[in-house]
Design a protein around this nucleic acid. Structure first.
Lengths: 203, 203
DNA sequence: CTCTGTGAAACACTTCACAGCG
DNA sequence: CGCTGTGAAGTGTTTCACAGAG
């Protein structure tokens, strides 16, 4: 029963946030379900992958559940995040406070523009992309926020210096080697998907 | 055979971009597949939802296929997009050139900060959130880039003035009424998912 | 008596493999 | 002969429904 379904992993992160917000001493699957917008059966099934965490007739003890979720998601220690690309999007991400609150630290921003290197953006140092290998111990996850043309090359470099988890915002579909998990978040693609549903959700 | 699976819709948008980039006169399912990183059988199955578009023994006639994809995705006309929230992220989105290229136009940015209203960001006017209903004819899709606290309220307003498609970047899981399609893109959630896989992808 | 945990059924999506068109 | 389009099989995910713990 090990091997958690991918679909479940994506929801565990939501549950973590949902349960944190509920801020009760115990929570039931139904409460979590309505907080994150899925079915109660789904919540129970998902949480069952973490082993027996609940108390029958009562629900889940909040602190215990949060610990289990954080452990499963690898969030026990603070996680370092590198941002590659100091353009508009990279800067916005660097200034986004939400990361720190959730246990992630932006360790540095990488670019190739000599004018930017050595400066600091929202308190984070800007370094040359060439120093990624030297810095690679500092972070576990990288965010690609470069133009599409550069994205493939950046992924290659990241993968070469041992990064296993990449979040790609460049408008290109990246696919790393099998041991590298890449999540592509393309804004245009998202809008196109929405556009599809707009036409059918009857006016 | 109508009713295209959600998973397929998400890929159609990728195919559109992949085929555009290939820029050939005809493309085979195998070519599309390798451009976007899925299996050839998957591409053929997905495209078959659009009806018979290919030519056996040859592949798909590029122009014809692009037209069919754009029609299916509701991208025949230019699509208006409103951005709500003129903070860091909202500004970055406003400056992101990729939208215009793909048939989307940012019509305006909405905020409640009096100091920002009336100014313009990357050429897009900043208006008060209260003017959303009056402007609602201008856009079909809205992007929420506000703090988490405001997001629910904003969704409510958008839905009240007839918006059916919403892309939410605020760190909150929004769920609109059934006739409103909401896509939640939460950066922290994405990082948490990556964090999960980091621990398992054998070092 | 409530709410979890889970077999079993249902459903959704993907892959296989090949008939048959051009 | 190459490549599409698709039944059929396979796999993954969700829902149902209920036994049983607290």
């Amino acid at each position: 029963m090990r091997q958690i379904p991918r679909a479940t992993v994506a929801r565990l992160a939501r549950y973590l946030q949902g349960v944190e917000e509920l801020a009760k001493r115990t929570v039931s699957s139904a409460e979590i379900a309505s907080a994150v917008g899925v079915s109660a059966a789904q919540v129970r099934r998902d949480l069952s992958y973490l082993g027996h965490q609940g108390i029958r007739g009562v629900g889940y003890e909040t602190e215990h559940l949060l610990t289990a979720l954080r452990r499963e998601l690898g969030l026990v220690e603070n996680v370092g995040v590198a941002i590659v690309g100091a353009g508009n999007l990279g800067q916005a991400l660097a200034g986004y406070g939400g990361f720190e609150e959730r246990g992630f630290s932006v360790t540095a921003i990488y670019d190739i523009d000599a004018a930017k290197i050595g400066t600091s953006i929202h308190g984070h140092p800007v370094r040359h992309v060439d120093s990624l290998p030297a810095d690679s111990e500092a972070f576990a996850i990288a965010i690609i926020a470069t133009p599409a043309e550069a994205a493939g090359e950046v992924l290659h470099r990241l993968s070469a210096c041992g990064v296993r988890s990449v979040l790609n915002f460049a408008p290109a579909v990246l696919k790393g080697p099998p041991n590298v998990e890449v999540r592509n978040v393309d804004l245009s693609t998202e809008l196109q998907i929405l556009s599809f549903y707009r036409s059918r959700n009857g006016s």
